[in-house]
Amino acid sequence: MLGEGIVKGLAETARNFFGSYVNKERLTTVQFPEERLPQIEATRDFPFLVYDGTDPEPGLRCVACQICEKECPPKCIYIVKSADKKPDATGKAQFYPAQFDIDISVCMSCQICVEVCPFDAIKMDVEFEMSSEDRFGGLLLDKYKLAKSNEYYNKIHPTEAGAVDAALAEERAKAKLAAEAKAKKDAEVAAAKAAAAAAPPPPDATPALAAETPAPAVATASGETK
């Protein structure tokens, strides 16, 4: 008979209709601003800058190498490199971005800046409620708005941040070991020299810190810019 399926379908929608009033489990929608779904760890939208420690001013990992600025496909990153060096979170003197702006309205969330950064200084954020009434100023984020702590990074992407932290710690330890070895060698050389000269000068503390420089890339990059 014609219309059997229609009746079945009508019964099904009626069940849905009344069921959704009785059984809250049926409703799959989440009332957004009040209720939120748990964040998925792989979520990412726009880049932010990671800083170590508590204060973003010295703690930024970024050394203004400008690789991300060059690689950014839509050219939404603008960096002004500092003229002087300041000690970073680990106490080493580094260049720092005097200005670091990302235009979120231009950014296409491609994550290339994150992939090219040799210092793990730029990462992807999960913040998405960024609407602004100011179309140009409100979406142009400066260094202070971009800077977020490593703890925050650990909170939003725990697995990834843990791996980054471990790698950084290992690198730093290696660098430290190398530096110590170098210092020891220097000290030995110095001692030998001192023994030879019988008037040894005391070993300086600064070479040890300088030797902590993890990669030679920075040296060449800074050399080029100078």
């Binding site: 929608t13 849905n16 209709f17 069921g19 959704s20 009033y21 049926r26 409703l27 799959t28 929608t29 009332q31």
Partner: peptide, 10 residues
Amino acid sequence: KGLGRMQNRY
């Protein structure tokens, strides 16, 4: 609203 409820929405 009715269509929403039939599709298990608000």
